[in-house]
Design a protein around this nucleic acid. Sequence first.
DNA 1: CGTTCTTTTGACGATCATCAAGTCCCGTGG
DNA 2: CCACGGGACTTGATGATCGTCAAAAGAACG
Lengths: 248, 248
Amino acid sequence: MSETLSASRCTADDTARAPRAHGTRRTLFRHATGRANELAWGLTESGVPDVRLGRRDTLLRSGTRFEALYVIRAGSCKLVVTNPDGEEHIVAFCLPGEVIGLEALGSGVHATTAYALEALTCWRIAAERVDMLLRHNGAFARAVVDVLSLDVGRGLRALTMLGTMTAAQRLASFLLDLAERYQQLGFSGSAFELRMTRTEIGDHLGLSTETVSRTLSRLRTDGLVSVSGRSVRLRDRTALGQILLHGA
Amino acid sequence: MSETLSASRCTADDTARAPRAHGTRRTLFRHATGRANELAWGLTESGVPDVRLGRRDTLLRSGTRFEALYVIRAGSCKLVVTNPDGEEHIVAFCLPGEVIGLEALGSGVHATTAYALEALTCWRIAAERVDMLLRHNGAFARAVVDVLSLDVGRGLRALTMLGTMTAAQRLASFLLDLAERYQQLGFSGSAFELRMTRTEIGDHLGLSTETVSRTLSRLRTDGLVSVSGRSVRLRDRTALGQILLHGA
DNA sequence: CGTTCTTTTGACGATCATCAAGTCCCGTGG
DNA sequence: CCACGGGACTTGATGATCGTCAAAAGAACG
């Protein structure tokens, strides 16, 4: 695998590598996703990959009954919560290997809508199968509990910082998180394509489109990153980490 | 149960009533807690209530190995995440009936430190017992998964709003959430004692102490609440809901 | 090749953090 | 019982950050 990463190459690669569980990290927003490795279980027996979607297609819709879990094989998607006013907020971007739909296990109803950001391939684990495995397979149940528990922990860290972080901190957090996730997938952690627009990043981080753009420009003139459209190269990850910890 | 609620009465009452599961709510910060009713299971057999703490005592410490889950019988506590700089952020306030420590199931290490805000009594479910129940008791596993899943869903809604809410919205959210939780416990939802300082509220909501104070004053002069020290009375919950949805 | 979406940059104003000063509340010890 | 001290709370003034409005350049797509 080459060190540089073009959008097409990443998208074309359809194997979700089993990522290792990771320790405490200081970045945001891995929410409601979770990793597939512990769940490989439910998949090995289920056989064929299932769902194929195109850009802007809907994988599942908030408010609908829980019918299946999905594990991303290739592509990426965004998880959106719509509030009563109709405003949309992006609560997570999901990459290959991540599990979608776990948040619906408790209520039986999906809390988020998942839109494909590009061509998307997913495994599907039907609800009945999830139920059955949870009841009769202690190891599977434990795996699900672990994934959920890790998600809650990540959410705690996210909440910790969201109220108080500056725009630069949020972007540093966002970029470092993406870098680490790509790296765990076997791609370069220092150069990658963003799959989402500036507006979507802003929706995710609680910033306006303009602030996202301005802050990225500032990081670029400061020499911390190279940005050209959706292509990003992290030039000084240590400095980004410093921004994350100690502010702009 | 009288409609008014003094601090002493609430504290003295040592029965965690089984609260019903609730539907979608628009308020923040029920994170990493979860409700006891589904877990009554692990308790009925375990017998005696266990831990008793005083104000400022530590129930469990972030970074330590997971040794037990705790369910609050009486009193309240705060969950704190400490970042590498030593800054503390309060990620949740927990009331009777809520479960503490679930976020450590996955990693085996606690992500938060729990400090008692007042006299605190908890049930304790030892880790081995949790393990055993998860493995051999499908209903228990399912209950844990449900509680965690609901927590993740709440976390998603919290993340949705945290980045974009104004000070007034955050406080409205905070007060309405507390009101609903007290009501579910059988206390008044319109008049209650705050158990935490203004500074702690600010730490929780991502606001400065001064802004918390100023915003409460503004809500008071607008006739939405009565505030006198730690005593709060919500005079117009509908208007508070409007602030939460549509801003100041 | 034009239309539309995305991105960038500038100017201005609102919100909120910070600094500062003063008041209230509560526990402690005289 | 009262005086003292320290923390909690309130209120004001000022400045920084970031959202909004606006305009224009660039990229994608039919």
